[in-house]
Write a protein that binds this DNA or RNA. Structure first.
Lengths: 105, 105
DNA sequence: CAGTATCCCGAAAGATACTG
DNA sequence: CAGTATCTTTCGGGATACTG
């Protein structure tokens, strides 16, 4: 389950229950349409995300976690906690080891 | 913190406390010497893994998690739990969606 | 709005050979 | 045993343009 964006997508969906394509795009900047579409398909392929599209004009598609996708919550939470506590200190260490070239994002 | 192998390396070190180069290689098949060396350097660079080498013949180097590296335990545990519970069912879904070509590893 | 289709490049990583 | 050096390949993912 690689992919640069999957974690962010799932993370967005754990916090919002249901999101549309454009909302997900805004939730995961700066993801491209192409990557968002691809990653969503893969997540759908492993049964973690469900897609519901309405044949209306303008078109509309809702994405949500499946029951199985929701089982990822504890994992996502653990990762988020760790990130909050250690991100900055790790980044400092990485800079000291010249593994990164400071950009303040 | 990308890298195809870092999770496995850290996982091996959470379960074993201290491992030598060759032991880590065996713990993360089929990683190559090159990748193991590189990933270990990066983990050392962010202060998650410590390296202790003994100037003996034959040479010997011990790797272990630092205090900071050990803070990853809850995350690793959460991921491991999830993997145990969902790995097979996810793989099935992925095969059904032809995202993988069965290899029994 | 919600995507697909193409093209392309650079980083990640495999293979192989070598060393103190 | 514990790595490093070099070469080659793969492929993830960005840019851009197009469509129902």
């Amino acid at each position: 389950m690689g992919g640069k964006w999957k974690a962010r997508i799932v993370w967005a969906l754990t916090r919002n229950d249901v999101l549309r394509f454009a909302e997900l795009r805004r939730a995961c900047p700066p993801i491209s349409d192409r990557m968002l579409s691809r990653e969503l398909k893969e997540l759908e392929g492993c049964g973690l995300v469900s897609r519901t599209s309405y044949a209306s004009i303008p078109p509309r598609t809702d994405y949500a976690l499946t029951a199985r996708g929701r089982t990822l919550r504890p994992v996502m939470a653990a990762m988020a906690d760790w990130g909050l506590e250690h991100r900055s200190v790790i980044l400092d260490a990485m800079m000291a080891a010249d593994m990164v070239s400071d950009n303040g994002s």
